[in-house]
């Protein structure tokens, strides 16, 4: 039976949610972009005021429905509506902002329930090449007791967005497997999820992406999820529901657990 999975793309204005969905969607995305009148706050011509919507059909026929939130806080009434029923979340941040952590914090609070299940990944754009630049983001998440993988990405690149989705599904499947088996995360690595389908999708650039990521691409990865599956296995915090189709994971991601 064909399954439908709802995924959320969240983050502040201009972090690239619309761009990310456009990069991977197989259909022309539904866009609700309008002229931005607040150019002082953010110098961007258009801004999303309701949602973005895109879709990916996996070889199995299963579908990923991609929903992007409007990033400005005055549209927060849409956030909870769009979060409802989401299996996981791609949270995006922009490191080039004057104070990226203040903005990130808004979304960490607003989506804390979903984030604390671990069914999420954080993609940081425009990150400096300095070693350890991602560590601050991992530390920020840790302070909020959120254990999710963090990646440096350029969401204009399809394979970077697919990397985030791969990581998200890998994260979800490890959590799910750990919850089912009650085993530590390391032993749950051979489980199943749409992640394999995503990597095997012939329409996906990522399917042939066997080379290690190059400089400037989604190369720097930190898995902050080290002990999450173990926490779940020990009964600390069971994940929310979700069913996963049977495909072997062939993600090209490095996994640090």
């Amino acid at each position: 039976m064909v399954q439908e999975y709802k995924l959320l793309f969240a983050g502040g204005m201009g972090v690239g949610k619309t761009t990310a969905i456009s990069a991977v969607s197989e259909i022309p995305p539904v866009s609700t972009d309008v002229a931005n009148s607040d150019r002082e706050a953010f110098d961007k011509e258009l801004t999303t005021v309701t949602l973005d919507y895109g879709r990916i059909t996996l070889p199995s026929g299963d579908r990923l429905r991609l929903y992007g939130i409007p990033g400005q806080q005055r549209f927060s009434f849409m956030w909870a509506m769009l979060e409802h029923g989401a299996m996981g979340m791609v949270l995006l941040a922009d490191a080039s902002r004057p104070d990226p952590f203040v903005e990130l914090d808004i979304f960490l609070k607003a989506f804390s329930k979903l984030l604390r299940t671990g069914r999420a990944v954080l993609g940081v754009g425009r990150l400096s090449k300095r070693r350890g630049a991602l560590d601050k983001y991992v530390a920020k998440l840790a302070r909020r007791k959120i254990k999710i993988p963090v990646f440096s990405v350029d969401v204009r690149k399809k394979k970077d967005v697919l990397l985030l989705l791969d990581a998200l599904f890998t994260q979800i499947e490890v959590l799910e497997e750990a919850y089912r088996s009650g085993e530590p995360s390391g032993k749950a690595a051979q489980s199943t999820s749409p992640a394999g389908d995503l990597a095997n999708n012939p329409a996906s650039d990522h399917a042939n992406d066997k080379e290690p990521a190059k400089d400037g691409e989604a190369s720097e990865k930190v898995a902050a999820s080290a002990s999450l599956a173990d926490d779940l296995a020990s009964g600390k915090e069971p994940p929310k529901g979700g069913v996963f189709p049977g495909k072997t994971v062939q993600s090209t991601n490095e996994t640090t657990v």
Partner: peptide
């Protein structure tokens, strides 16, 4: 008024998107 302004613009944009579809 502040909240309704945001909602009104969202609904208008959603209506526009629905019309296109």
């Amino acid at each position: 008024p502040e909240k309704f302004a945001a909602i009104a613009s969202s609904m208008m944009a959603l209506g526009e998107a629905a019309g296109k579809e």
